[in-house]
Design a protein around this nucleic acid. Structure first.
Ligand code: FES
Ligand code: FES
Lengths: 144, 144
DNA sequence: TTTATTTAGGATAAATTTGTCCGAAATAAG
DNA sequence: CTTATTTCGGACAAATTTATCCTAAATAAA
């Protein structure tokens, strides 16, 4: 469904959000630990999320990653997925035709579009805030 | 969403079904052509679909692939996807936790499970027959 | 200013998926 | 029986994704 990079990216962002809600910055090392992801690979992903403007990064001692608190509520899961995996999952054909086009549909088009759109709606409606809150109150988990 | 192998496999199976409904066997070469897929790679996929019992293969001149006509209606999209991509897409965690477990859910579990289940239901309800019919009457297409 | 710490970024490597090649095996037809 | 055709199956290669390593740049604190 999502790429490994995207899975790590989502988990990392949620973890950063939890910390940011407590005005805490968090280091790459800690993130990778808490999210159960390879450190160097996670670094790349966070780097790209920073470039996308979803998270902020700071170098040096006391450095690390954080998210502007006012943004935590407006950032949606969709934004993270789109930043990392692009829009193929949102607009791509289920059978890999170059372009999904209702006027020249593939055999699964009608059935697939509904699922795809549901996914998109879900991702657009899910805020980082609710995901972070669920984690903070111990309702959800980032690793097993 | 689906692997490339699965995309090719679905398209190939639909094409074979259309031909089988006319009591025609079809060669690998023709399939790859009509489905717009790499020949040798398609051969591997068809081979595995044959082992899974979804399609039948015959060697030699006049050989090729076909599907038992009585099965075309009972084979569901789910069977093809499961045969090629396994069940990760049906039971796997959206964030890649080793196991999706409602009693120890990841942050997206509640929202993800709904989408995942919808996909599963859709695939279980979609028969090869209807996909093949749509293609035969020119309503849908396998390449662009 | 020096040092320690942390992210940035480029090069590289490993793993997986996708794709190719070729000889073997089966089989239909002359 | 011989030949031509077609799938089978194993080895191999290319491309992509995932993951690592190392140096540079920034920066906070002594
Ligand atoms: S054309 Fe295939 S999903 Fe729309
Ligand atoms: S635990 Fe992640 S989707 Fe169920």
């Amino acid at each position: 469904m999502f790429s490994k990079a995207c899975e790590y990216g989502i988990k990392a962002t949620i973890y950063i959000a939890v910390k940011s809600m407590r005005q805490e910055r968090v280091s790459l090392k800690e993130i990778a630990e808490e999210v159960d992801s390879p450190v160097a690979f996670t670094a790349k992903i966070l780097q790209s999320l920073a470039k996308s403007g979803i998270i902020d990064s700071h170098k040096g001692p006391t450095g690390g990653f954080q998210i502007e608190e006012t943004k935590i509520d407006t950032i949606k899961l969709h934004d993270i997925v789109h930043a990392i995996d692009g829009d193929k999952i949102f607009v791509g054909c289920g059978l890999g035709l170059e372009q999904c086009d209702a006027s020249q549909p593939c055999p699964v088009h009608d059935k697939f579009v509904g699922i795809r759109d549901n996914l998109k709606i879900m991702l657009k409606n899910t805020s980082l805030y609710e995901l972070a809150t669920g984690l903070e109150i111990g309702l959800t988990h980032l690793k097993r």
